[in-house]
Design a protein around this nucleic acid. Structure first.
Lengths: 117, 117
DNA sequence: ATTACAGTTGAATGATTGTTCAACTGTTTA
DNA sequence: TAAACAGTTGAACAATCATTCAACTGTAAT
């Protein structure tokens, strides 16, 4: 049974039970939401898209998107912490690349959706 | 060429040009970000997941997630405006369902990613 | 060693957003 | 027609977050 914090009676107990039994853990939903949060900002998607095209350094990304190095760097940090991009220092310059192909697939699925309606 | 609002010189002009030529329109990135925003909250993903399991009414979703009808209804409105769910009024009760299978595919791709590392 | 520059960082700020609350619709039933 | 209830709505509040700013690291070059 489910805690009745809600402000109504269950209408279809069978449906609620059926879905409730199959629900993934709370943590899984939080993890998934956090993953999608990374794609939920246009600056971050642009960065991911650009990196899916070519590996790039912070300065080039800043120039490409018309933003400051700082702003880009902050977003790259979020993406790094979410394991979506990987840094590769070569002297003074840090090149960033997508962490894996899964990342690319995810936003391709998204583009498909936005185009298909 | 790109407006130099950024605080640095372009280091790899060829790379920036290459990526710049292939960049989708700004609107496309905004649309994509807005799509992912819908998946970027655990309550909304739970709702989408539940609906991918069975069509449900607002009360049942509220009971399932231990939240108020109001909170659920607000989120369903966002999902409706993004064309991710569809309402179907039957008397006093409004049943919600996923708008299409694409929606399901998107968060399945996400689950794959969070599980695969 | 000192200068130059790519990149990072933390605090501050303004904007966005999820939930609550209370008032409201719309449909059904008595 | 009046009561009951599923659902919606807008304003308010707190929390989250993207960007700016200024100060900082680390590497390369003179």
């Amino acid at each position: 049974m489910i805690d009745n914090i809600c402000d109504c009676d269950v209408i279809h107990q069978d449906v609620v039970d059926y879905v409730s039994e199959r629900m993934p853990q709370n943590d899984e939903f939080y993890a998934l939401a956090n993953l999608y949060k990374m794609f939920a900002d246009s600056t971050r998607i642009k960065i991911l898209w650009a990196l899916s095209c070519k590996d790039m350094c912070v300065c080039d990304l800043a120039a490409l998107l018309g933003m400051t190095k700082s702003a880009i760097s902050h977003q790259l940090k979020s993406l790094r912490l979410s394991n979506l991009v990987r840094p590769d220092r070569q002297g003074k310059i840090v090149f960033y690349s997508l962490a894996d192909d899964h990342v690319k697939e995810i936003f391709i699925k998204g583009f498909e959706h936005t185009h298909h309606q």
